[in-house]
Simulated assay, not measured.
Amino acid sequence: MSLAGHVATLGRGPGRSRSLTQDEARDAMTLMLGKDAAPEAIGALLMLLRMKGETAEEIAGFAAAAQEQAPALPRVDLDWPSYAAGRTRGLPWFLVSALMVAQSGKRAMLHGWNGSDPTVRNGLETLGIPIAHTPAEAEAALNAGNIVYMPLENLCPPLMHLLSLRAVLGLRSCVNTVCRMLNPAGAAASVQGVFHPSYRLLQADAAQRLGLRSLTVIKGGGGEFERHPAKAIEAFGLRDGAPWQETEAARLEGTRRLADSARPINSLKVAVSPAALPRFESEIILGTAHLAMDTLGCADSPLHFPDGTHASTSLPLTA
């Protein structure tokens, strides 16, 4: 079917329009990622989905087509997307959590794009997490340290183009969710953050349709997979391929926002050694790492800070 045909399916009007099936969504995304799709049709389809609200079938179909466009990559244990704009969060402490997962022996691939906010990519450089632009660079980084970050613009340029249409259309589209579901290295486990809680179940349902075995989705700091230590966290996703939901108790007492303390990016270096790390930031890192390890089925495995210091993930509630 042409892209115009898919637009017609979505936009025929009350009583006649309907959502796309998973196969139709896969075909539509394949067309949008190609070179011949009319930009007017792409914009129409994305905005019709925005008005209607995307379904799990549509997200799964779109993500499957996008996965076909990504290059062949070395397999990893954990997929960690990062696509939040960062306006409501502090420093990306979750990057330290990802490092801790890698130090446990699990291979983790981060990938993403954060709009005009350079904080995450500056944090990668500060912490020494390799940024790979090719599959060969990714494999070398994973073999050396079990962790790598791939920019979306290198990973899948056509999908990056669709994501960038937000500046043209003026609104977020379903492409933001598709990017989170990309899982370019075919990991069996994924951790995902959302800003709007309603997307947690949508992404869990789409992940199940894509055959993911384990997934944890939370409303995280600024939309990233990063838990707030002073709040109970509702987690949704999959375990052994089946729907799963759990509430994790707060790790700290008190009230505070993640972005309350503005700090320079070099402050992330403090997290390499926990002795100089404030308790609140330490609990951001440990709580996020614990959720990631639980997603991998390794909740009881020991964790260490980047300097080798043993980290407990079951500290008592404290003020």
Results as ranks from 00 to 15, higher is better:
residue 223 G to N: 03
residue 290 H to K: 11
residue 219 K to I: 07
residue 224 E to M: 08
residue 285 I to K: 02
residue 207 A to R: 14
residue 179 C to F: 07
residue 204 A to K: 03
residue 265 I to W: 11
residue 211 G to N: 06
residue 218 I to M: 13
residue 237 G to T: 01
residue 156 C to A: 15
residue 259 A to K: 10
residue 278 P to K: 14
residue 233 I to W: 07
residue 148 V to N: 03
residue 151 P to V: 11
residue 290 H to V: 04
residue 157 P to D: 04
residue 243 P to F: 06
residue 206 A to T: 00
residue 230 A to G: 08
residue 191 V to D: 10
residue 286 L to C: 15
residue 243 P to L: 10
residue 258 L to G: 09
residue 282 S to F: 14
residue 170 G to K: 14
residue 293 M to Y: 05
residue 199 Y to W: 06
residue 287 G to W: 01
residue 184 P to N: 09
residue 257 R to G: 09
residue 148 V to H: 05
residue 268 L to P: 03
residue 222 G to I: 02
residue 185 A to T: 02
residue 206 A to I: 00
residue 259 A to P: 01
residue 157 P to V: 03
residue 240 D to A: 11
residue 244 W to N: 04
residue 208 Q to V: 01
residue 248 E to H: 13
residue 162 L to N: 15
residue 285 I to G: 05
residue 267 S to C: 08
residue 281 E to H: 12
residue 263 R to Q: 14
residue 182 L to E: 14
residue 220 G to V: 01
residue 204 A to V: 05
residue 182 L to F: 13
residue 237 G to N: 02
residue 169 L to M: 11
residue 150 M to W: 12
residue 255 T to L: 08
residue 272 V to G: 15
residue 294 D to S: 04
residue 264 P to W: 05
residue 275 A to N: 12
residue 205 D to K: 06
residue 281 E to P: 04
residue 166 R to P: 00
residue 175 V to L: 14
residue 192 Q to V: 15
residue 213 R to H: 09
residue 292 A to E: 07
residue 268 L to F: 11
residue 165 L to C: 10
